[in-house]
Design a protein around this nucleic acid. Sequence first.
DNA 1: CGTAAAGTTGAATTCTTTCAAACACGGTGG
DNA 2: CCACCGTGTTTGAAAGAATTCAACTTTACG
Lengths: 244, 244
Amino acid sequence: MPSHLFGLIGLCLTCPYKQHCFCKNLLNRSSTEIESSPIKNVALLAKQYLYRQGDMNEALFILREGWIMLTRHSEDGKRHVFRSILPGELIGFQNQLRGPTTYSAIALINSIVCRISNIVDLFSIRPELGLCLASALACDMKLTEMYLYNIAHRSAQERLAFMLLELHHRLSLRGLNNGYSFKFPLNQEDIADTLGLTVVHINRSLQAFKEEGLLQINKRELFILNYTAISSLAGTDFKIFPPL
Amino acid sequence: MPSHLFGLIGLCLTCPYKQHCFCKNLLNRSSTEIESSPIKNVALLAKQYLYRQGDMNEALFILREGWIMLTRHSEDGKRHVFRSILPGELIGFQNQLRGPTTYSAIALINSIVCRISNIVDLFSIRPELGLCLASALACDMKLTEMYLYNIAHRSAQERLAFMLLELHHRLSLRGLNNGYSFKFPLNQEDIADTLGLTVVHINRSLQAFKEEGLLQINKRELFILNYTAISSLAGTDFKIFPPL
DNA sequence: CGTAAAGTTGAATTCTTTCAAACACGGTGG
DNA sequence: CCACCGTGTTTGAAAGAATTCAACTTTACG
């Protein structure tokens, strides 16, 4: 491929998660018709911020490898984790809206993101991307709404069961699970801040699960031992979250 | 205007909330270049459903007049209100994703919605709409995230203050307020189900506000008497939600 | 091996829910 | 015009879920 074409599609063709990316429908076209585009990979170390709440950020990002969390800090010191971003997922479009970013993006483990710096150009060259983007956002919205529902109306154990299975489901769609177990880089405080509970309470809930033989955690790997039981607590059929 | 052009732009030109609609950027163009499109108005009576959770719904809707709530019922009888839809706002795009609708849309008062039935055609004729749509979804997302944060981390009175000012803000952007007061068709159960609290507790919180002279409710109209006090409880600067 | 970060435990407190009953109000029909 | 009915609002008391605070233990890591 000529080097001036190394851009959107050039990088995408080598992306291991291209089938989960919002732009996947464009990949069916011949790549030679695609213009070069200001896209490049960025590496992040564990605990490094991609951007911070309050920044004026212009770019769009897609996670290629790793695990990113979207977090919001409030004046009174509380933190909320909006969601975990898994490979193939898109972040940063919200920053296109007027005003500074309302949340931070932080890598939990070493990660690689694909950075699209000039969105306006990209969308003027390929307006069909707009609809792809809208679909990706609608998926995020659906997920966020499910968290909203769970946090608003359900008990600590139910929320926890929902979250763990939700992550398992999303990882499975990407082949990032190992049957009923998966790499789990979140600590108990991250879980607490995702579910609107305290670390202490998450700790007790997790222990209850372990004592009842529902799951096990070992060296940042989570093993679901009794899927049926956790699933009935979670109370959600994850088929409502099909792949993009 | 020739009658075959009475479609997207024909209806839109007469829409009182066109400046708040996701498609507003297209209205700057000459309307004669726009093809006819399968768009029409639909009237809803109070308490009538626009669509129901579980339906296979294909259309996109924009509220022209009235007040719609997006609700989700769970098997155990609980209800969650995701959000109130105000004139100019878009709903139903999520239904484009595979699978049945995950929530219902119900009119609280008599309403009129604009129905766009063939989305695929519309977006193939006007691909730029995709980006407009994505921006509208990003706004919804931002709002939903703020509710998520409030519900997950803050007290009943704080959530309530947030919700009332959030509605006041969004209504103000549309000129649907009357200074510090506005038409308020929600009952206490609707508020409770939006905030993840019980009616009883909402009742007590509202009374506390009334006793301290912060607000007053009269014949479905809400009067904010002490904006500063409620605002400090709400703890949010609504400038983060600019018009589209 | 020593320090910092993460996880665990108990007891007391607080906020919210639950349950049950009463009240207010608007609309309808006799 | 009044009695009645349903929906929505109000009130009290007891129970429950999660938080707070403070201390202790374990794990990770240079």
